[in-house]
Amino acid sequence: MVSGHSNMPEWVYIGVVVALLCWVGAEAWNIERLVEHIPEDAKLIKVTGQQWFWTFEHEDGTKEIGELHVEAGKAYKFEITSKDVIHSFNIHDYVVLLDAVPGRVNTVWFAPTEAGEHDIQCREYCGLIHYNMRGTLYVSEAGA
C-alpha cells in the first residue's frame, strides 16, 4: 500500500455493511411473502382505471364509480386493469397499491379491519386530471 496503512478496518466495515444488507433482504423477503399470500375466501372486486376515474365491479355484478363499499372483517381481492393509459390504484391508509396497466390484470388483496372512510387515488401520472383521479373507500361495520 502506498501509504502503508492497514486495510483491516475497511474489511470489517464492508462485512458490517453486507451483514446489514442481508438482514434487510431477508426481512423484506419474509414480509413480502406474507402479504402476497391471498386468502382463498377473498371476495373479488374488479377495478378498472381510465382517464380519470375508477370503476369497481363486485362479485355479484354491481358496479360503482368513484366509490367502493366494502365490509370490515372480510378479505377482498382486487383485479386491477386499465382501459387507456397506465394508472396506479392506491388506498394509502390500507397500504394497497398496484399499477393498472392496459392489457394486463394485476392482483392485490386487503382485509379492512374497522368501519371508516378512506381516500382512493391514482399514483401514476396519467395526464391532465391525474391529480384529481380520486375516489373514496367506505368500510361498513362487520355483518352490517
Binding site: I31, E32, Y125
Partner: peptide, 11 residues
Amino acid sequence: SAMPLDFVTHD
C-alpha cells in the same frame, strides 16, 4: 429497496 415498502412509497 425492501419490496413490501414499495406499497407505501411507490410514486
